[in-house]
Amino acid sequence: MKQFKAKIISNRKIAPEHYILSFKRPEKERRIEPGQFFYVKISDSYRPLLRKPFSVHKISGYSIEILYKTIGEGTRALSKRKKGDILDMMGPLGKGFDAVRRHKKVMLVGGGHGVAPLYALAKQLEYPAVPAGRLSIFIGARTKDHIVCDKKFRRLGARVYIATDDGTRGHKGFVTDLLTRKILGSRDKDTGEGRGKGHTAIYACGPKEMLKSVWKVARRYGIPCQFSLEEYMACGIGTCLGCAVKTQSGYKLVCKDGPVFDAKEIVW
């Protein structure tokens, strides 16, 4: 069964509004892909009524971690749950990243807590260690308080680029400014040409506006791109048709067809 009771191992604050919750892995046999999500019933009350989706942040043989930001009443209630508490969960649900190892360069772009699924992906892309310069992560957020996981990515061997809206950390402005600079920098110095198909890949997760501008950059330079999308959902398994996202082939469901989509599929 994809529904189970999960025991909380820890639920710790990592930034003023960010938490990492670790719970016991349900069945070792079941494959969990980065980009998939767990659908969590946070409390037994009717407020919040619906489950909340959280993408996998870290997968190990014994435990699963999810990273979340306290945004609404659901996530605030989740932050109060303690070690040893039991959570009703469904998952892993949805379709994860199609992690292609052949790309010479991988660029991850995360907006705020959008870094959550990217860490699981980064760990899977190169295990045990990432060759220097192959993996870069671009993290954008409102202020320095919303930049999380940068150290973890650095420990994986990734190059970390940070942008904040208010300039309290890293580049002041959009994360896509840094992305564009990096892409241009990696081009052939003599001809200014790109490195050809299959050289670079982008994986991103974050607010819609950010993804839209990442897509613009990626399209301009012909770089393949996968996005993990977010949309309000009710059932989480593809029955209610609530979490629709417009694609080139009609509406698709974030919970079942996604949450990861090829960026060129999406109608922006």
Binding site: R47, L50, E231, Y232, A234, C240, K246
Partner: peptide, 23 residues
């Protein structure tokens, strides 16, 4: 039927508000 433009579901106090549009 394609259904209605998203967002199609949103949580209400003790409830669920939906506008799937008979997709």
């Amino acid at each position: 039927k394609e259904g209605n433009p998203p967002p199609r579901v949103v949580e209400a106090p003790w409830g669920l508000l939906n506008s799937i549009g008979l997709a």
